Each structure stands twice: as C-alpha cells, then as structure tokens.
Amino acid sequence: MDALEHAGESRAKRRARHEAFYAVTRGQFNTLVLVGSIALAAWTQLLATAGTGGGTALTSITRNLLLVASATLLVAPLLFRNPDQEFSFLGRECLTTIGYTALILSLTSALADLFPTTGTVIATIVVAAILVTDALEARDMATMYD
C-alpha cells in the first residue's frame, strides 16, 4: 500500500482507519497469548511423558521447537504491548512470524517422528513451502522499501 494513497483523507477517515487497526492489534494480542498458552501446556505435557508412554516417540527437537514457539508467542505481546506505535507493531509481527513458524515446524517434526516414511515427506514439503513463502515475502519487503 502506498503511503501517498491516504494523503488526502479527511481526519474522520484517518481516525476510522486507525481505530480499525487498533481493533486488529487488540485481537492479535489476545490470540498470541491464547496460542502461546496452549503451546506451553502441550510442551509441559510432552515433557512430563518424555520417558514413558506416547512421549517416547517424539524427539527432543520436536519438544524444543514447541517450547520456542510458546515462549515467543507469549513474550511478543509482553515486550511490544503498545498498539499505537509502529515499532511495537513491527516487533510484534516479527515475533509472531517466528512463533508461528516454530509451531508449524514443531508439528511437522512430530509428524516425521510419528510416521517416519510419509511423515518425513509431508514435513519436507511443508518446510519447503514455508521457505518459499518467507523468501517471497522478503522479496516483497525489499521492493517496497526501494
């Protein structure tokens, strides 16, 4: 979106756009805390059953990725809690991307652990898709700031 696109807007229109942005940011804050808490609960359960039962099938990489995801998703809204500042928005978006990527990688690692043949193939495809998506997004960001 071009910054000059909104240059001629009235004060009321800019305020409405700002209020919509604030509502989305508030929802994102709640979602990050909820998903991070669920991931932390799942990690705790996997750690408790690591030596026995169903937890033995998963590697430590899977558990560690889940811990990174939960920590990142819980820390993002705490470090960057001011919804009105651009720095907070950028920091929260960065940590959100890292947290969700770690969560997806943890799930694909669990898939590869539980189903060694087909799970590994599916996990590899998912990881490749994540890499391509991130590369395209980085390219778009680079062209936006040229």
Rank of each mutant, 00 (worst) to 15 (best):
S37Q: 00
A42I: 12
A128Q: 06
T118I: 07
D134V: 12
T31M: 08
V75C: 09
G91F: 02
T56W: 01
P116D: 04
A112R: 03
R17H: 12
T133H: 08
I125E: 06
L34W: 08
A135M: 10
I125A: 13
L107K: 04
W43C: 03
A123R: 01
P77M: 02
F80P: 02
M141G: 07
D113W: 03
L58I: 10
M144K: 11
E86F: 07
A128N: 05
Y100R: 05
R92G: 01
F89W: 06
S37H: 00
L46N: 06
Q28C: 09
V127T: 11
A71M: 14
L34N: 02
I98K: 03
T62A: 10
T108L: 07
A48K: 05
E93R: 14
E5K: 09
I104D: 02
D140K: 13
G54P: 06
S37P: 00
T97D: 07
L111Q: 01
T108C: 07
T101L: 07
R11Q: 15
W43V: 02
L95Y: 12
G55D: 04
S109N: 10
D113K: 03
L111N: 00
L131S: 09
F21H: 13
R139M: 06
R81G: 13
T62N: 04
L46T: 07
L136W: 08
T120D: 01
R15H: 04
K13D: 14
L114Q: 08
L40G: 07
R14I: 14
S70Y: 02
V75S: 11
E5H: 07
R139S: 08
P77W: 02
P116E: 04
T124S: 11
A135H: 09
K13T: 15
T97R: 12
T143D: 12
L46K: 05
Q45W: 09
A39E: 02
G27I: 05
T72W: 02
L32Q: 07
E19K: 14
E5P: 00
T56L: 06
L103E: 11
T49S: 07
Y100F: 15
I61L: 11
M141C: 10
I98S: 04
A16P: 05
G119M: 04
A76C: 11
G51K: 08
G55W: 02
F80C: 05
G54Q: 08
E93S: 15
A42D: 10
F21R: 15
G8M: 01
M144C: 08
L107P: 00
L74A: 06
S10N: 14
V68Q: 00
L111H: 01
F29P: 02
R92W: 01
A7L: 13
G27W: 05
H18M: 09
R81M: 12
A142G: 01
D84M: 08
A50Q: 13
L67M: 09
G99C: 09
A3F: 12
F87E: 11
L58Y: 15
Q85P: 00
L114C: 07
L58M: 11
L131W: 05
L67S: 01
F80Q: 04
A135F: 11
